[in-house]
């Protein structure tokens, strides 16, 4: 199944998602991220998908939902480390045009 590890430094937060993202696991990932987001004053959330082995369109909903939440809080969302299978899903969804997308390069900010 899926797992998410949270790292926070000041107002920057990273969520490292791994395993399989589907409708079932997306709900748990969402709750973990949102709880951490709301507890602290976060203005940059990076979601790292480097450990994701499967993602259906529930992952798109997960990203769009966090994008809307961050926008409402006056923050930014960046996604990174997406494997090819996840990239296919994101391109199909047209989501790369909406949110900041770092492709497969790992980010050093976290």
């Amino acid at each position: 199944m899926a797992d998410v590890k949270i790292e926070r430094k000041d107002s920057v937060m990273c969520a490292y998602v791994s395993g399989e993202i589907d409708h079932h696991s997306a709900a748990e990932i969402r709750e973990t991220i949102d709880r951490a987001l709301i507890a602290k004053d976060i203005n940059l959330l990076t979601m790292d998908f480097g450990g994701v082995t499967f993602m259906d369109s529930s992952g798109v909903g997960l990203i769009l939902g966090r994008y809307k939440l961050l926008s409402a809080l006056g923050g930014r969302l960046v996604i990174q480390g997406t494997p090819p299978s996840v990239n296919r899903m994101l391109k199909l969804a047209g989501i790369t045009k909406i949110i900041e997308f770092k492709g497969e390069t790992a980010d050093e900010t976290c």
Binding site: A26, S57, L64, L92
Partner: peptide, 14 residues
């Protein structure tokens, strides 16, 4: 609802 992307059938077809 807000957390669903509405892409299910589009993904199946693709």
């Amino acid at each position: 609802g807000a957390e669903r992307a509405g892409l299910g059938f589009a993904v199946m077809e693709s």
